Computed example of a mutant assay.
Amino acid sequence: MHCQPPCKEQVYNWLNNDHECLLCNEATEQPYPLCVACEAELPWLEDGCQVCALPLPMRGLTCAQCSRRAPAFYRVEAPWHYGFPLDALISRFKYHSQWPLGRLLAQLLGRWLTHRFSEGLPRPALLLPVPVSRRRLRQRGYNQAGMLAQWLAGQIQISSNEHLLKRLIDTPAQQGLKASERKRNLQQVFAVEHSELLEGRHLALVDDVLTTGATAQALASLLLSAGARRVDVYCLARTAKPGST
């Protein structure tokens, strides 16, 4: 069985060398391998639901689903919507072990959150990465959410704990499932360990992409039942509603 890779060692050389942009190969003149022009062209999420960050046509709106029934999580913070070239960067990190890309995305997410905290977003007490099953961890060798949370914790100075949430059942992959199928897929899948550590605390779940929100809803409900005061979701990207542009 593979262990979670030592994130700091894997990206040490990358962090301490002159950078070329990972998208256009030009010199970046920035402390990370992404030039100003390519960073500006990332699919920034400017107009999203105030609760779940679903891309919407105007700023300051709440989507129909969150208006009908508020989710268990309080709000989602995502810098981008899931589009090109960000989708390719996440895929290369998640499925092809290209960890420097994950480190870059975590650094940009940390900058985004630091800005949001300066605007008044309440800081959580603890980061909790979305867990993966033991079988998937053996196959892939790492949990991308755990790596993101570890890098993010160092940047925004908030502790991360990978051991408080467990995935009990190895369900079929969520990708490609409808919203209703995702909810059924996640019934009684997760568990909390050491719930006394969560009592009355503001928590933030960390993941790469939020699609329907079914996983975030299941975990937030579980954490609130275990005594958490508030649960937010921090992710790299939010997908659009199926069929929308």
Rank of each mutant, 00 (worst) to 15 (best):
L108P: 02
L42P: 05
T114E: 14
L89G: 00
A37Q: 15
R184S: 09
Q65N: 12
R138V: 14
A218Q: 08
L56E: 08
K241N: 13
C52W: 00
R68Y: 14
L22N: 02
G146W: 03
L164F: 07
A179N: 09
L205H: 05
Q10K: 15
A226G: 07
L222F: 03
P31W: 04
R201C: 12
H163C: 10
Q175P: 10
L210S: 06
R140I: 06
N143A: 04
D170G: 02
S221H: 08
K8N: 11
D170H: 06
R92T: 12
P71Y: 04
A70V: 11
E9T: 09
Q175H: 15
T114V: 04
G120D: 06
S225E: 15
T171W: 00
L128K: 04
V36L: 15
Y82L: 14
L45V: 06
L222Q: 00
S67M: 14
K183N: 07
F190R: 03
R230P: 14
C52A: 03
R134Y: 13
L152R: 00
Q175D: 13
P172W: 06
A106N: 00
A216T: 06
L56A: 09
V36H: 14
S118E: 14
S159L: 10
H96N: 11
C21G: 03
A179I: 06
N17S: 13
Q217L: 10
A88M: 07
A106G: 11
L61S: 10
K178S: 12
R59E: 15
A191D: 10
L198R: 00
N185R: 02
P79H: 11
H2P: 11
C63T: 05
S133I: 03
F190C: 02
H81C: 09
P33W: 02
A40V: 13
A64M: 07
G146V: 01
